[in-house]
Write a protein that binds this DNA or RNA. Structure first.
Lengths: 328, 328
DNA sequence: CGGCATCATGACAACGTTGTCCAACCGGCG
DNA sequence: CGCCGGTTGGACAACGTTGTCATGATGCCG
C-alpha cells in the first residue's frame, strides 16, 4: 500500500480511503491512486484488515468426515451456498472419522479465527471447544451430536428411518431381516441399530443378534457377512444397510448372484433408481442437512442468543422395488 | 496474549516464547504460563502471526466448478490430502461455471494471501491473476487450460479418450454414433468433440452433424436429443456422452425403454459397473488429477522455478458391456 | 571483591491496515 | 484584510504476534 502511495504521490491513508471508497478524496487524486493500484497489482491484505478491525474474518470452518463422500460433498455444497449468501468463505477439512484429526482441524480453524464452526463429529469429546463456545463463537454440530458440550445440533431421525425400513420389509412378508451397520461407537450407527430393533419389535419380529453385523465394514467383510446371514435354514430374506457405502458393498457382493435378498439402504445415492431392481432407501438429503446447519450458524452470527437448539430433520422411505421383493 | 501474560505475571514476550517452545524460559515460568493459557483458553491468532512473519499463511485456494459433483469432490479430497502432507489448509469455492464467480473467488483467495491457487477454469480470461503470478504466487490450472496466461496446467487426454471410445464402438460394428457433449465453449467439451471427430475419421465413419448435440444439457434436453438421433432410418446405434452428468441423463432417458443404444460415457462414476448392462466409460480419476495439480503446486512452493509445465494425464477406456452392444 | 559469562526476562518495533485526530488550504463573507 | 467553515491530506496509534536487542540477576573465577 505504501508503494501505491509513493507511486501516486499521496499518503498511505489516502490510498486506504480510496480503497474503501471513503468520501473526502479529490476525484483526480482518486484516479491517480486507482491507476497506481492497477499498475502495481495491489490487493488489500485481508489478514491485516481483519487484525485491525478485529471483528470478522469472513470465514467459517467446516469439519467433516470426507469431502470425497457424495453425502458430505452435498452437505459441503449447501454450506458453501448459504455462506456465500452471507459473504463468507468456507474452510473445509476431512477428519476421516479420526477424533484427533477432527480436533486438530477444528482448533486450526479456531486459530484462524473463523467466525463460526460446523462440525460433523468424529469423536465423543468436544470439551476442547469450550473456550470458543464460552467466548461466543457459534458452533453447530451436524449429523451426530457433540460429546460433552451443549451446542446447536442438526440431526436426522435415524431411529424412525430404520424403523420405517423394517416396517416396510415386514409389510412385504419378511421376518428374517439382517442389519449391516457402521461401527457401533458412531452415533448414527447406534441410533439406526436402535431403530432397527424398535422396528423389529413393532413388527413382532424377535431380535436375532446373529443377523446383525456392525462395522467398520469393507467390501470383503460385507461379502463374508452376507455369506453367513444369507445361508442356512434360518437365512435372512432381507437386508437393511446402515449407510451408503455399506449399501454399495452389498450391491457389489450380490451382483451376478442368484436369490438376491430384499434390500433397503440408509442414505439415498445417485443411480439407485436405475439399478435392477431399483434400490429402496431411507432418504436424507445432505443438502437439507447442510443448509439447516449453516442457517442455524448464521442466525447465531446475526445475534440469535436463544438456548442451543436441537433440530431433528425427518427422513422418508423411498420404495423403489428392492424392498418389495417377497421372501422366497 | 496480554491477558495470559498478566495472569501469569510475566511479559507478553515470555508468553510468546512459551507458545513457540523457544528455549531460555525457566521451567517454573513456563508452567505458570501454560496454566494461564489453559485457564483462559488462549489460542494464538494465526492471522497476526502471518502478518508478522509475512511469509506463509498456510492456506491454498481451490476454485472449482461444484464441490457437490462427485468428480470435483474427489479432486478436492486429493488436493486436501496433499495439502495436509505439506501442513496447509484448503479454502474451496464453487464457481458454477461462471467466469465472474471464478474471478471473484480467486481474487478473494488472493486477498487472503493464500500460498498458492488451484483453479478449474470457468472462463477463458485469467489475466486478472497476472499480478500474483508475476509476484511469484504459484497457480495451477486443472482439467482445463487457462485463457491468456502462461501457467502450470494439468489436463487429461480428452482427444485420445474420445477417439478411443469411438474406436471401441466402431470395433463392435457401429457406424452411426451420436455424441452428446457439454457446451462447446468449455475446453474439455471442445476437445472431446475433436477426439470424437478424429475417432470417426480414423474408423472411416463420415462425420454427421445431425448426430452431434452440444450442451448445456438438462434431463429433458437430453431426452429430446435422444428421441431425435435414435429415430428414423438413419438412427444412431450408439451414443458417446461428454461427461458424467450427461451420461446419467442418458441412462435415465433410456431406462425402461426397449432397443437401448450402445453407450460409452466420459468420466467414470460409482455403480457404473452395477447397472444393466454395466456402463463402459472413458475413465479419468479425479483423485489423480487433483493429486498431480497439488503436487505441482507444492513443488513450486518448495522452490521449483522451472518453466511452466503442462501435464497431460492419460485416460483409459473401461469396457463393461454397454459399449459392446451390437447394432441392431 | 571485581569482572565476566550465562541465563532469564522484558521493551520496542514492525508486519498492513484503518480509525481518530489534526493541519493546511481554499473560498466567501463581514 | 481577517476570520470561519468546509474540504482534503497526513501523522499516529492500534489490532496480536514475534525478532532484535537490552537489561538485570546469578554464579563462577581470579
Amino acid at each position: 500500500m505504501s508503494d501505491v502511495a509513493r507511486l501516486a504521490g499521496v499518503s498511505i491513508k489516502t490510498v486506504s480511503r480510496v480503497v474503501n471508497a471513503e468520501p473526502g478524496v479529490h476525484a483526480d487524486t482518486a484516479k491517480r491512486v486507482l491507476a497506481a493500484i492497477d499498475r502495481l497489482g495491489f490487493r488489500r491484505n485481508l489478514g491485516a484488515l481483519n487484525l485491525r478491525r478485529g471483528s470478522s474474518t469472513g470465514t467459517i470452518g467446516l469439519v467433516l468426515e470426507d469431502v470425497g463422500n457424495p453425502f458430505y460433498s452435498g452437505l459441503t455444497r449447501a454450506v458453501e451456498e448459504v455462506a456465500r449468501g452471507f459473504g463468507r468463505q468456507v474452510l473445509t477439512g476431512s477428519s476421516d472419522e479420526d477424533p484427533d484429526r477432527e480436533r486438530e482441524l477444528a482448533l486450526e480453524f479456531c486459530a484462524r479465527r473463523v467466525d463460526g464452526l460446523i462440525v460433523v463429529p468424529a469423536g465423543l469429546r468436544h470439551g476442547y471447544l469450550m473456550p470458543e463456545i464460552t467466548s461466543g463463537m457459534p458452533v453447530v454440530f451436524v449429523d451426530r451430536p457433540p460429546g460433552d458440550v451443549l451446542a446447536d445440533t442438526v440431526l436426522v431421525d435415524n431411529i424412525e428411518g430404520a424403523a420405517a425400513a423394517v416396517a416396510h420389509l415386514a409389510a412385504h412378508g419378511h421376518r428374517r431381516i439382517a442389519f449391516l451397520g457402521d461401527a457401533p461407537d458412531i452415533f448414527t450407527a447406534a441410533e439406526r441399530l436402535r431403530g432397527f430393533r424398535e422396528g423389529c419389535a413393532k413388527a413382532g419380529i424377535p431380535y436375532d443378534a446373529e443377523l446383525v453385523a456392525m462395522g467398520p465394514h469393507t467390501g470383503p467383510s460385507v461379502r463374508a457377512t452376507l455369506d453367513r446371514v444369507l445361508a442356512g435354514r434360518s437365512a435372512a430374506t432381507a437386508v437393511l444397510t446402515g449407510n451408503n457405502r455399506i449399501t454399495v458393498h452389498v450391491l457389489r457382493a450380490v451382483a451376478g448372484g442368484t436369490g438376491r435378498p430384499a434390500l433397503v439402504g440408509f442414505d439415498d445415492f445417485e443411480l439407485a433408481d436405475l439399478l435392477d431392481p431399483p434400490v429402496s432407501v431411507v432418504s436424507l438429503q445432505p443438502g437439507t442437512l447442510g443448509r439447516a446447519a449453516a442457517e442455524l450458524l448464521f442466525a447465531r452470527l446475526n445475534g440469535d442468543t436463544s438456548p442451543p437448539r436441537r433440530l431433528m430433520l425427518p427422513v422418508h422411505l423411498v420404495p423403489r422395488g428392492s424392498g418389495e421383493v417377497e421372501p422366497s
